[in-house]
Amino acid sequence: MSEHRVRFAALFDAEVRPHNERFRVAAAITRGEDVLDVGCGTGESTREAAQASGTGHVLGVDVSAAAITRARELGGAAFEVADAQTHPFPVHGFDVVLSRFGAMFFADPPAAFASLARALRPGGRLVLLVWQERARNEWYAVLHDAVAPGTAPPPAGAHFSLGDPGTTRALLETAGFTGVTFTDVDEPVCYGPDSATATEFALGLKDVQELRGTEGAAERLRAAFAAHETDDGVLLGSRAWIVTAVSRG
C-alpha cells in the first residue's frame, strides 16, 4: 500500500481537495505554533501547516518509510517515521495535533490518543479529518458493487473506525480531551481525471484488495467510474467529519 500511496501521491491529495480546504480552515494554524501531523503520508497537510506556522516547529509522522522518504524529498517541514501509539513525543511539546484521514488506522486507538493528549500543551488543539460511517459514503458502495457484485460487504474496516460520533467522543474524552465537536463535510471525492486513471488508482486501494473480486472486476470498475465522469474528473459522493477537541493537560 505504501508504494501505491507514493506512486499516486498527487491523486491522493487531489482526491480530497475540498475536504482539505475545510480541514485547513478548521486547524487555524497561526504563526509560531508548534504542530504535529499524524499519518501525514507524503506531507501535503504538514507543509501547509508549516507555511501557516512560519517560525514554529512542524513535524509530520507516518508509519510508511516510503511515504516519509517522499515527504522529505518534497521538503517544507520535518518528517519522521513514527508510530503515534508508541513514539516518545515530547510531553506538552505541541500546540496543535493534526491528522488528515490518518487517525482511523490506529491499531490501539486508546493508546494512540492518550499519547497525542500527552504531546499537546494544556489547552492544545486536536483536529482530525475522518470518514463518517460506511453507509454514508457512496464511494465505498461504488467500489464494492463493481468489484464484488451480489455479495454482502465485509465488516466495516479501519477507514470507518471513527465514524460514529458517540463512540469517538467517548474515546477522546477518556484519552484526555474535552470540548469534542463534529462538523459535517459533505463533499465529493475525485478518483482521477478519467475512468481509466480511476480504475488503476482504485485497484491498488486496500478497500478493493480486501474484497473478493470476481472475474471482470476491473472492467466493471471502469464502467462504474465512467458513469461518474464529469468535467472535474470522476466524482463520487462522500461524507466526513472534522473532529476537534482540546487537551485537558
Rank of each mutant, 00 (worst) to 15 (best):
H4W: 15
G213S: 09
R100C: 06
L235M: 10
V246A: 15
E187R: 07
R5E: 13
P153S: 08
V185T: 07
N20T: 13
E173F: 06
T197W: 06
R47N: 04
T167N: 12
D232I: 12
F201L: 06
R31W: 11
R70H: 14
F8P: 00
G166M: 13
D95R: 04
R70M: 12
V185G: 01
C190H: 05
Y140F: 10
S2K: 10
L236K: 03
E44C: 10
A65P: 04
A71Y: 04
A114K: 10
G249M: 06
F182H: 03
F101R: 04
F160N: 02
A84I: 09
T168P: 04
R121G: 10
A146N: 01
M104A: 07
H57F: 13
W241H: 06
T30K: 09
V180C: 07
Q85V: 14
F101Q: 05
D83M: 06
S161R: 09
C40Y: 03
A28H: 13
L11E: 05
E48I: 12
G39N: 01
F160A: 03
V38N: 02
L203S: 09
L236I: 07
A240M: 07
F23A: 04
T199V: 08
V97L: 08
R100F: 08
S161Q: 11
F225T: 00
V180E: 05
A112N: 08
V246F: 09
G56P: 05
F105H: 03
A196E: 14
F8C: 12
R169W: 08
V81Y: 04
G150H: 07
P154E: 09
H228S: 07
R239L: 09
P110A: 09
D184V: 13
A217F: 02
N137F: 03
A10L: 14
W241Y: 12
V96W: 00
D83F: 05
F182R: 01
A135N: 14
D145I: 00
L143H: 03
G163W: 00
A27K: 00
V127K: 00
A227D: 13
G249F: 07
S195H: 05
A67K: 02
A82C: 10
R24E: 13
D231W: 11
A148K: 03
R17Q: 15
R17Y: 12
C40R: 01
H92Y: 12
E80K: 15
L74P: 05
R212K: 14
V6K: 08
V147F: 01
A245Y: 02
R222Q: 14
R72E: 09
G204W: 02
R220Y: 03
K206Q: 15
T183W: 10
G124S: 08
G204H: 04
E80R: 15
A84H: 06
R7I: 07
A170R: 15
D13H: 12
D164A: 09
A217D: 02
A66P: 05
D207L: 14
E200T: 14
R72F: 11
V6Q: 14
W241C: 01
V96N: 02
V208I: 12
A245P: 03
A111T: 08
T244K: 07
A112I: 04
T42D: 03
L116Y: 02
L74D: 05
T178I: 11
T214G: 14
P193D: 15
R118S: 15
A66N: 08
F23W: 04
C190I: 06
S64Q: 08
F225L: 10
L221T: 00
G179H: 06
R72N: 10
L59P: 00
F79T: 02
A198Q: 02
P122L: 13
F177T: 00
I68S: 03
